[in-house]
Design a protein around this nucleic acid. Structure first.
Length: 719
RNA sequence: GCGCCCUUAGCUCAGUGGUAGAGCGUUUCAUUGACAUUGAAAAGGCCGCUGGUUCGAUCCCAGCAGGGCGCACCA
């Protein structure tokens, strides 16, 4: 038992202690002898787009506290870690990196590009794991998963085929949100809105009978080339007499009808709206109601098509807009131009303005799945903590549209869909027969063979929405040899710890996937934790330079201090305005604890008999023991209701101001034996209480002062 | 437009139907004592505003103002 140095140095402790834990195998529940009741949490798999930020650190710290707390209390606790391939997000960071070298993904081709992304994921995947380990995360690394592991991929295919066979997956040409930069469709949840200053052009559409004009207001004049109607509100008196008449669409010179539709807001613009069914969500709905044709003006590259007319074909959207405006001006049909600030839909990854356009995509019918997910929460089988996050969950599920699950990117799970070659290849000796019987599309885990001819099937080049695979996280991708056993023991898991921004994107989809494939919701509780913002209340982001790297804090103050600083501020679900002084307080607190241990070492030396022999004759002994008892049950209560910040504040208060400032100060003047027993009991109890929050220093002190040898870890000493 | 949340010390935040609390910062004093990453103390608050309920409101209720977030709209 070496003497403790006068100041605690996390650098001399943390790596050594982490190795001790890893070597002991206690992170793997199979090695927890005697533990019975399962306690399981799945790490929300971080995207392999880059390194972890404070949000991950908060999530990981909360989870580690819950896991360690339960492991210490005899639960068979397991934390399943892993990472997410994060389709579009990862693809786009790799593309950006390539762009710096002047290469596009098209230059490389699909196969080589995907290799590059794998290289990226290997690099960042391991950086992420190192970061988690530095924080002290006690996850079961022997069961690390990645959402593109072979076993995971098998599940993804199985799930797709299951839905397909139920008739819930269909392919259709629908209006989707198209990102011209990422060259892919996006789901409704992948849209973000950006406020932008634009213009509102008022355009005169001449009535076909030459009796006057209808003025429409638009922010996108170029789409007039694809107008199929002008719509007004049926209650709008101004246009009452015009409904049913026709206008002559300028430039294109197409006669289009004036129709009445309830969706039109009488008070915006002129109350008359140009309807472009192929390039606007609302217009598309109006188009369907009124059976209007959809003229596809804009292609997937964001350029005008032939349909836009000779003068416009091939122009970029902005060029087409300028040209249309110029033409209208020339024709004297531009009434006026107003400035307007409005929100434009942008891609959540590239920030590019999204184009609504018609595209062949695969959709998953949401009706029944959404109903199940709604019921799970409404019935209380799955609780969202705190409750107020239930409302947005309900609202989304109640109004959800079918989920566009196909993406035109290269990084991800290719759809298990196979298309017959365009032409049949006669089988030897059987030429020319039965070709029309060939299946055009087959859904299958493996490459199918045509029954009727020798043509090959080509796999769909689309990949699945990344959330289609993350939705399976609570049950997919385990080693097939032990999958059954793991799911039997640890499905459903005990709680899901996550951030509010992915409640619908991820949590809702895990719930309905779990219900569909495991017949049970994947977790009884969803803990929604705070979001960490800058001190000024701004979003932390790498690109804005407002991000903080948890590893820098760990280097500077130590992992325990970092965890302390995070949890110290995590008082509820209120956003955290990050304050580094809390981490400094953590560092000081670690040193305080260390010096309590030094005092113990110098005054008492060796471990004392345990609490059974305590006699409480002295008043201050009674008081401190009473306070300890109260603290212990308060912490149990706090952890149970996920109030980790308040719990930590109480432990801090007790250790610093009760144990150190009061009890130890008075103990200095005492010579009796009882004070040694009490101090022994106090220090050990404090280590146990604090261990889930600050695992390194507590383990280090425990190893130095209490453990008989290094096979004895805090984890096994605290039930 | 609909919904949720926030407003308490200089800063970041707790908290309770009955003298208002922490961390950091500030000021004063102490000093080699387990710890200067220390101890003792102090200053600093119409607990956003206006009404209501109550013997009593920072807390409960209503309204207002300011800030944040989500959803919808954004022609």
């Amino acid at each position: 038992m070496n003497e403790l140095s006068s100041a605690y140095d996390p650098k001399l402790t943390e790596d050594k202690i982490y190795k001790l834990w890893e070597d002991s195998g206690v992170f793997n529940p199979d090695n927890l002898k005697g533990a019975k009741k399962p306690y399981a949490i799945h790490l929300p798999p971080p995207n392999v787009t880059g390194s972890l930020h404070m949000g991950h650190a908060l999530n990981a710290t909360i989870t580690d506290i819950l896991i360690r707390y339960h492991r210490m209390r005899g639960y068979k606790a397991v934390w399943f870690p892993g990472t997410d391939h994060a389709g579009i997000a990862t693809q786009s960071v790799v593309e950006k990196q390539l762009k710096k070298e002047g290469i596009s993904r098209w230059d490389l081709g699909r196969e080589k590009f995907v290799e590059k992304v794998w290289e990226w994921r290997n690099k960042y995947g391991s950086i992420i794991l190192d970061q988690l380990k530095k924080l002290g995360v006690s996850a079961d690394w022997s069961r690390l998963r990645f959402t593109m592991d072979p076993a995971y991929a098998e599940w993804v295919k199985k799930v797709f085929i299951h839905y397909y066979e139920k008739g819930w997956i269909y392919r259709g040409k629908r209006l989707v949100n198209w990102c011209t930069a990422c060259q892919t469709a996006l789901s409704d949840l992948e849209i973000e809105y950006k406020e932008e200053k634009g213009k509102l052009w008022h355009i005169k559409y001449p009535l076909a009978d030459k009796s006057g004009f209808v003025v429409v207001a638009t922010t996108r004049p170029e789409t007039m080339l694809g107008d199929a109607a002008v719509a007004v509100n049926p209650k709008d008196r101004r246009y009452e007499k015009l409904v049913g008449k026709k206008v002559l669409l300028p430039i294109i010179n197409r006669e289009i009808p004036i129709i009445a539709d309830d969706a039109i807001d009488m008070f915006f613009g002129t109350g008359a709206v140009k309807v472009t069914p192929a390039h606007d969500q609302l217009d598309s709905e109006i188009g369907q109601r009124h059976k209007l044709p959809a003229y596809e003006l804009i292609n997937e590259r964001g350029k005008m098509t032939d349909e836009a007319g000779k003068d416009f074909t091939g122009l970029k959207i902005i060029q087409a807009r300028e040209k249309v405006v110029a033409e209208l001006e020339k024709l004297g049909l531009l009434e006026k131009t107003e400035d307007l600030t409005h929100n434009v839909a942008v891609c959540y990854r590239s920030g590019t303005v999204l184009e609504p356009l018609l595209s062949n995509q695969w959709f998953l019918k949401m009706e029944k799945l959404a109903r199940g997910a709604l019921k799970a929460v409404k019935s209380g089988k799955t609780k969202i903590v705190p409750e107020n996050f239930e409302k947005p969950y309900f609202t989304w599920l109640e109004n959800v549209r079918d989920w566009c699950i196909s993406r035109q990117i290269w990084w991800g799970h290719q759809l298990p869909v196979w298309f017959h070659e365009p032409k049949c290849v006669p089988k030897d000796g059987h030429g020319g027969k039965d070709f029309d019987k060939c299946e055009e599309t087959i859904v299958s885990t493996t490459e199918p063979e045509c029954e009727y001819c020798d043509a090959k099937f080509l796999q769909s080049t689309d990949v699945l929405d990344t959330w289609f695979s993350s939705a399976l996280w609570p049950f997919a991708g385990f080693d097939p040899k032990e999958e059954k056993g793991i799911l039997k023991q640890f499905y459903p898991s005990s709680v899901l710890v996550t951030a509010r921004d992915i409640i619908n994107l991820w949590v809702a989809r895990m719930i309905f996937s779990g219900l569909e494939f495991m017949k049970k919701a994947p977790f009884p509780e969803v803990l929604i934790h705070a979001t960490i913002l800058t001190k000024e209340g701004k979003r932390m982001s790498k690109s804005l330079g407002t991000g903080i790297d948890p590893v820098e804090l760990i280097e500077k103050y130590g992992a325990d201090a970092t965890r302390f600083g995070i949890i110290w501020q995590a008082m509820g679900t209120q956003d955290i305005h990050w304050d580094e002084t809390a981490v400094m307080a953590g560092k000081k607190f670690a040193n305080k604890l260390w010096n309590i241990a030094r005092f113990y070492q110098s005054k008492i030396g060796s471990p004392q008999p345990t609490a059974h022999s305590l006699r409480l004759e002295n008043a201050e002994d009674k008081v401190i023991m009473e306070k300890l008892k109260n603290l212990q049950s308060a912490i149990d209560q706090n952890v149970k209701s996920y109030e980790l910040g308040p719990g930590l504040h109480k432990i801090y208060e007790f250790i610093w101001h009760e144990v150190a400032d009061k009890y130890i100060e008075s103990a200095k003047n005492r010579e009796d034996e009882n004070v040694k027993l009490i101090l022994n009991h106090l220090l050990l109890s404090c280590l146990k209480l604090l261990h889930p929050f600050m695992p390194f220093i507590t383990e280090e002190i425990y190893q130095r002062l209490f453990a008989q040898d290094s096979r004895f870890l805090m984890v096994e000493q605290c039930s």
